[in-house]
């Protein structure tokens, strides 16, 4: 028999909220980096994400 942990939904919701906030912060940091980075350079990184 598998014993599942008791899920604390409030705790989980807090974690999801924090995760969202952190992801948005990352997007903002990334845009700041994009702004000061030449097109030739940032495209190289994007191509890796796109699997090219």
């Amino acid at each position: 028999m598998v014993h599942l942990p008791k899920i604390d939904l409030k705790e989980l919701a807090k974690e999801v909220r924090q995760n969202r906030k952190q992801r948005l912060e990352f997007v903002r940091q990334y845009v700041e980096w994009l702004k000061k980075t030449p097109n030739k350079v940032w495209v190289k990184g994007q191509k890796k994400v796109l699997g090219e």
């Binding site: 000061k36 097109n39 090219e52």
Partner: peptide, 20 residues
């Protein structure tokens, strides 16, 4: 990132990805 707004156009010279 280098781009410029010219009226209704955005001039954006960048190397193309396969998706582009």
């Amino acid at each position: 990132m280098e781009f410029s707004f010219k009226g209704k156009n955005i001039v954006f010279n960048k190397p193309l990805t396969n998706l582009d």
